[in-house]
Simulated scan of single mutants.
Amino acid sequence: MAAPVRGGRQFALPLSLPASSARADFLEDASNAEALAWLDRPGEWPLGRLALFGPAGVGKSHIARATAAAQGWRFLEGPALRGLPPPGPGGTVLDDADAVAEERALLHLINLCAERGERLLLVGREPPARWPVGLPDLGSRLRATASAGIGRPEDALLGALLAKLFADRQLRVAPDVRAWLLQRLARDAGTLAEAAARLDRAALAARAPVTRSLARAVLAGWEGFGEAADDDASETFAEAASPGTAALL
Rank of each mutant, 00 (worst) to 15 (best):
Q71M: 14
V133R: 10
D96W: 09
R49I: 09
G117C: 08
P128G: 04
R74L: 09
W131R: 04
T67G: 01
S140L: 11
V133F: 08
L142S: 02
T145N: 09
Q71N: 07
E103W: 10
R116C: 07
P127R: 10
G57M: 08
R125Y: 03
A144D: 15
N111R: 14
A66Y: 05
S61L: 10
L76K: 01
G151Y: 01
G124E: 00
W73Y: 12
L120W: 04
A101Y: 09
A69D: 14
G149C: 03
A148P: 01
G78H: 02
E44D: 14
P127N: 00
G57S: 01
E44Q: 13
G43M: 09
P127Q: 11
A101V: 12
R41C: 07
R141Q: 11
L109D: 04
L106W: 04
A148Q: 01
G90A: 11
V133E: 03
D95E: 13
P55D: 07
E77F: 02
A114S: 14
A64M: 03
P46F: 10
A68W: 04
G54N: 03
A144C: 10
K60H: 04
G83A: 08
G139M: 07
L112K: 10
G151Q: 03
H62V: 05
P87V: 12
L39K: 03
R119Q: 14
I150R: 00
E126L: 08
L138V: 11
I63S: 02
L50V: 06
F53T: 10
L138C: 07
R49F: 07
L122G: 08
L121S: 05
A101L: 10
G88I: 07
A56E: 13
S140I: 09
S61A: 15
P86V: 13
G78S: 08
A114V: 09
W45I: 11
R82Y: 12
P42M: 04
L142K: 03
G90H: 03
G72H: 02
R116W: 07
R74T: 12
P46Y: 02
A101M: 05
